[in-house]
Amino acid sequence: MHMNDKIPLIREKALWMRRTAFAMVHRAQLGHPGGDFSAIDILATLYFGVMRFDPKRPDWPDRDRFVMSKGHATGALYTALCAAGYFPEDWLATYMQPRSLLNGHPNRNYLPGIETNTGPLGHGFPVATGIAIAGQLAGAGYRTFVLTGDGEQQEGSNWEAAMVAGHRRLSNLTLIIDRNRLQQGAGTEETSGLDPLDKRYDAFGFDVTEVDGHDPAALLAVLGAAPGSKPRCVIANTTKGKGVSFMENVASWHHGVPNDAQFEQAMKELV
């Protein structure tokens, strides 16, 4: 199958993920929908176009790994895992409920398909680096993908991991940065600026590519490409709240939740 043949499926899954994630957030009146929507096309591309995995064998040693470092975006992660077949759809309705396995942040002891617990920002990339080193030591063929927020890049732990990954030329590791230019309270550049992010990762020994993070074809081209000789950094330019007019680029939708009218409006737009 040609890579681009996967695009309709990726789009279909991404649409279902957006609608379903927003329904979860609406029902729970909790969540982080802005960051869910900026990340969903990336997750849909990974799970339905790039990664090798078997939901029946979540501990298959040769599976490609995905680490959701921006752990607050569980609307995106849980809908991706559900769509990928890791657990039944009716579990999604328990999001945030007492004793639910769908906690506000992902817990690997609760659900299959979660590689590590995240929530505090700046944890996923170091763990993913460890997974990639383990793959190198074992001579295994799997690849490791990690998604961080852009505000999350302000955490120093990322840069410690970047130094290790660059130093060890972890070509089996791909860092994806959800570059929506917003963090919790404001823009990244007005808070503690990240630009030039490409030059920074280049200097740390990464192959850096910038893509439109909502274009499955562009994402497939870079994420699906065979590993080179260095770790890869994909700066995915995205829009926080992507897909819903009143949420796009509005900081307060970081953890804003919809009322009934807003939910209905969003369902009309997400088609």
């Binding site: 729970a28 909790l30 607050h72 906690n103 506000g104 942040h105 617990n117 995240t118 929530g119």
Partner: peptide
């Protein structure tokens, strides 16, 4: 206070 956001929070 962060309730449903879980043990990390």
């Amino acid at each position: 206070a962060y309730g449903e956001l879980g043990a990390t929070h």
